[in-house]
Amino acid sequence: MHHVASIKSNLVVFALLMVLLLATVGASYVPLGVMHFPVAMVIATVKTVLIVLFFMHALHSHRLTWIICVASFLWLLLMIVFTIIDFLSRGWLDILGK
C-alpha cells in the first residue's frame, strides 16, 4: 500500500541536509553583500523541499496532499511578497494629506 523508503535513501537525504546546513553557515561568512538573504532563503527552501518530499513522503502521496502542501507555501509567499511590496512602495506616490 505505502511506498517504504529504504534506510539508505533516508540516510542520503539526511547527509544532503547536513551539507546544506554547513553551506548556509559557510555562506554567512562569505562577503556576499545584499545576496546574503536570497542565498540563505534558497538553501532553506531546498532543505524544506528535501524534507517534504522524502521525510514527509509527499513524493508518494495523494494529489490532494500536494495541493494542500503547495497551496500553503504559495499563500505564505503571497502574504510576505505583497506585504513587503506595500512597505517598500510607500511614499513613492505624492498623495495629498500623507
Binding site: 561568512y29 562577503p31 546574503h36 538573504f37 540563505a40 532563503m41 524534507i51 517534504v52 521525510f55
Partner: peptide, 21 residues
C-alpha cells in the same frame, strides 16, 4: 515532527545568520 524541523530550518538563518558578519 518534520514540520517543526522545517520551521527551524527557516528560523536559524533568519535570526542567527543573515546579519552575522
Amino acid at each position: 515532527w518534520h514540520f517543526i524541523d522545517i520551521v527551524w530550518v527557516f528560523l536559524y538563518p533568519l535570526l542567527y545568520l543573515i546579519s552575522a558578519h
